[in-house]
Every structure is written in structure tokens, then in C-alpha cells.
Design a protein around this nucleic acid. Structure first.
Length: 405
DNA sequence: TCTGGGGTCCTAGGACCC
DNA sequence: TCTGGGGTCCTAGGACCC
């Protein structure tokens, strides 16, 4: 059976959501209509563009560029801070609304969902009409606009929702691939990033159609396994399923750019403790255990490092994982100034099967778990590391990392 | 006041075993 | 007395996405 997939994509999500918030609070100005961006805090070195208004886009401003550079392109640019809690709420509202149409719904990111409507043709006579209804409903109920892409697979639905923005419905059915997909520049294809595009352009592959017509052997020579995917995507082929991945996460991570480059081990330990507390708390809230622990960091020259270790058994306690985190940093860090640092937990599992369980202190765990639950609930409420075990020595209590004199 | 944060997947290469 | 080779597991790093 021919599949019917919808891709719903919020237009300029963070900016639209902040705009809606401001209007709700009674402000008169709709920031979607002026040259504006949502940006991080420059003083703490988070100064990049996270979302832009259509006017700002017209002036050449792109996502992820520095606010410094954005301001040069547009001197009267208005910059607004992020409101992640509010964004989460808007994202949840939209998701809840979309759930009425099918249980086969995948949250692809904070502002994108896939809907699998295959086999619902008795329910919905005309899919384009349905798409328009969804788009209008969201606008009327929540105040922000979306694009809806319709296709016979996820790739086509996603490419379709990207066509013309904002507040539009587009289709990209199999029969339309030649006319609608192939003329586009090759970097517009999903999964063609900067590097891939560069190589393709060198090979004189300039449009998605060029890519679709390129010999497999040539692509394999340059892109190895990625070649098959590129070739399929350029032909609008994608067999992947819409996955309602309820609580499925394969890794949990946190990282942050420090407000100054730090080469003080004690200070880094303090930051890592707070981060470990946060990721393990998230892990515990999913009733999971981690097998692999990694510390990632970036130095002042923007060189990235990641170092990981497998635990001897799946763990989720802050203190045990923190011990591993510190061990990893101690063994790998070359004492270069650190700009950004983070903790990642992966190989997550639901069960805590341990090879050495006969010997470890299983009995001690009951009370510890109860204490942990209480500590988690307090930290959930008052912020991470509000309560910390006495065994962890923390120097100072600053939440932000002030540069020492 | 120059360059975020949370993810997934892939690959090269080393260690180890037989 | 010129260091084969396949399989497996693991790590570091890179590319991509939003």
C-alpha cells in the first residue's frame, strides 16, 4: 500500500514561540514582523543565532552564526533571549493536538513531528484538505504557524515541508520527485551537510537531480556507506518507519560553554559534578542505567575531545558515575584551557544485570535508592546540585563560572 | 562581545584472541 | 631471522540533524 506521511514543521520555532509569548503578555509588537533573532547570551560566550525572523533572513542572517556577525549584517537587529520552558510547553501543545489524528506519530525534534496516516483514506477523504485543517487549527489554537509536508515516505514529507515558508502546505509524492525535488541545489537534500556538499560540488554534482543520476561507483568511492543513502534520498526513496519513540533515548548528555577558558582542575570537577548530577537524574527518571560514560570537551582552539569508559556494571548513581567521570578527565586532559565541557551517558539499559552482583553490596542499595529519590525530587524542584552528598567536595558555590582574579 | 547544546550514526584503527 | 589474517570489541573523532 502506498504510504501517506505528514511532516509538521513549526516556522522559525523559537522566534515564533517567543513572539506568541510576548503578545500573550500584552505587548503590542509582533517580533516576527521586524528584523529579529533569538540569541544566546554573549557575555557568557553563548552568542549565536538560534532562530531568525523572515526579515532577518532576508538580510542574510543564518542560524548558528554569531550575533556579532548578524548585527553587522543588520545594525537595527533586535535580539531576544531563549525561553526553553515556554518552548517545551508549545511543543507539547502541538504534539497533543496532533495525537488525535494517528497513534503513529514521531516527535522528530522540539518543533517537528511525523504522522503516518497510511490506511486512513476512509477517515480522511482528501489529505491536502486535512493538512490545511491541521495548519489552520494550530494557528488558531496556539498562535504560531507551521508548514505541512505530505509525501509517500518521511524523506519526501520532510523535503516538502521545507519548500516554501511560512504557513504553507506542500506535497512531494513519488510522481512529483522529478519536477519538484530534482531541480533543487544539492545542499537542500536532507543529510547533505557542508562537507558532503563541498565534495559533491567538486564532482560537478550541483542539483539533487544530478546526484540521482550519478553512478553508484563514483559515489561509493567518495562517500563509502553514506553513498547508498545519498543516492536513495536523491531519488526520494526512504523506507524508514515513523517511530513513536515514547521514552526511547539512546544517550543522555549535557554540555556547556564556560564563561572563560578554564584550566583549573578543581573548578572543572565542580562543573562536572553538577553535570553528572543532572544527567544521572534524567537517567533515573527514565528508570535506566548507563554502561558507558563519556567526558567531552573543547579547548580554546576549538579542538574537540571525547573520552569514554565502559562501567563494569550498569549504574545510575550520581556518586558512582561521577567517580568515573573524574577518572576519565584526569587520564585524558592535557591541561589545555577548556572552553566547553560535558558528560554523556550511553548504552542505556532498563535492567541492572551485573556480572559481579554476587559480590557487590546489593543490600545497601535499598536505603540509598530512597535517599536518592528524595534528593532527586528536591533537585528537580530547586535546580541541580541543590543537595549534594557530603562526600563530594565542592569549592565555592557559584552557579556560573566566574573568572577568578 | 567571535563561534550553543542535545542528539544519532559511521569509520578508522588499536587491542586482543585464535 | 622480513611482522599472516580473520573476527570481535572498543575508542576517538567526525559528519550530520534541529
Amino acid at each position: 500500500m502506498e504510504r501517506i506521511i505528514f511532516h509538521i514543521d513549526v516556522n522559525n520555532a523559537f522566534l515564533s514561540w517567543t513572539a506568541v509569548h510576548k503578545l500573550k503578555k500584552g505587548e503590542k509588537l509582533d517580533i516576527r514582523k521586524i528584523p529579529s533573532v533569538i540569541g544566546g547570551d554573549e557575555k557568557s560566550r553563548h552568542g549565536i543565532v538560534l532562530a531568525k525572523s523572515p526579515v532577518a533572513k532576508k538580510m542574510g542572517i543564518v542560524t548558528a552564526e554569531t550575533l556579532y556577525s548578524a548585527r553587522k549584517k543588520c545594525p537595527n537587529l533586535k535580539i531576544f533571549p531563549t525561553e526553553f520552558d515556554w518552548y517545551d510547553k508549545q511543543s507539547n501543545n502541538m504534539y497533543q493536538y496532533l495525537c488525535q489524528y494517528t497513534p503513529l506519530i514521531e516527535r522528530f525534534s522540539i518543533d517537528e513531528c511525523f504522522l503516518d496516516l497510511t490506511g486512513t483514506n476512509l477517515l480522511y477523504k482528501n489529505y491536502e484538505e486535512l493538512a490545511y485543517k491541521i495548519k489552520e487549527d494550530i494557528k488558531n489554537k496556539f498562535g504560531f504557524t507551521v508548514n505541512v509536508g505530505i509525501g509517500n515516505n518521511k524523506l519526501c514529507a520532510k523535503m516538502a515541508s521545507d519548500f516554501e515558508k511560512p504557513d504553507k502546505v506542500h506535497t512531494l509524492y513519488h510522481k512529483e520527485i522529478k519536477n519538484k525535488l530534482w531541480p533543487l541545489p544539492v545542499e537542500d537534500l536532507f543529510m547533505v551537510g557542508k562537507k558532503t556538499a563541498q565534495t559533491l560540488r567538486k564532482l560537478n554534482i550541483n542539483t539533487i537531480g544530478d546526484l540521482a543520476k550519478t553512478e553508484d561507483q563514483i559515489l561509493v568511492r567518495y562517500f563509502k556507506n553514506q553513498a547508498i543513502m545519498l543516492k536513495s534520498f536523491s531519488n526520494g526513496i526512504d523506507e524508514s518507519k515513523v517511530l513513536p519513540r515514547s521514552s526511547k533515548s539512546e544517550s543522555i548528555s549535557i554540555s556547556e560553554t564556560l564563561s572563560y577558558d578554564c584550566d583549573d582542575f578543581d573548578k572543572l570537577k565542580e562543573i562536572l559534578f553538577r553535570q553528572t548530577e543532572e544527567v544521572t537524574r534524567a537517567l533515573r527518571s527514565q528508570n535506566k542505567y548507563a554502561i558507558t560514560v563519556a567526558v567531552t570537551y573543547k579547548n580554546n582552539l576549538f579542538q574537540n575531545y571525547s573520552h569514554q569508559e565502559k562501567l563494569d556494571s550498569p549504574k545510575n548513581s550520581t556518586t558512582e558515575i561521577y567517580k568515573e567521570v573524574i577518572k576519565i578527565l584526569k587520564n585524558s586532559w592535557k591541561k589545555d584551557p577548556i572552553r566547553n565541557i560535558g558528560v554523556r551517558l550511553s548504552d542505556l539499559t532498563k535492567d541492572k544485570i551485573s556480572q559481579i552482583s554476587i559480590f557487590n553490596e546489593e543490600k545497601k542499595e535499598e536505603p540509598n535508592n530512597r535517599v536518592q529519590e528524595i534528593v532527586d525530587s528536591i533537585n528537580n524542584k530547586y535546580g541541580s546540585a541543590s543537595i549534594i552528598p557530603a562526600s563530594i567536595k565542592i569549592i565555592g558555590k557559584s552557579k556560573r563560572h566566574e573568572k577568578p582574579k
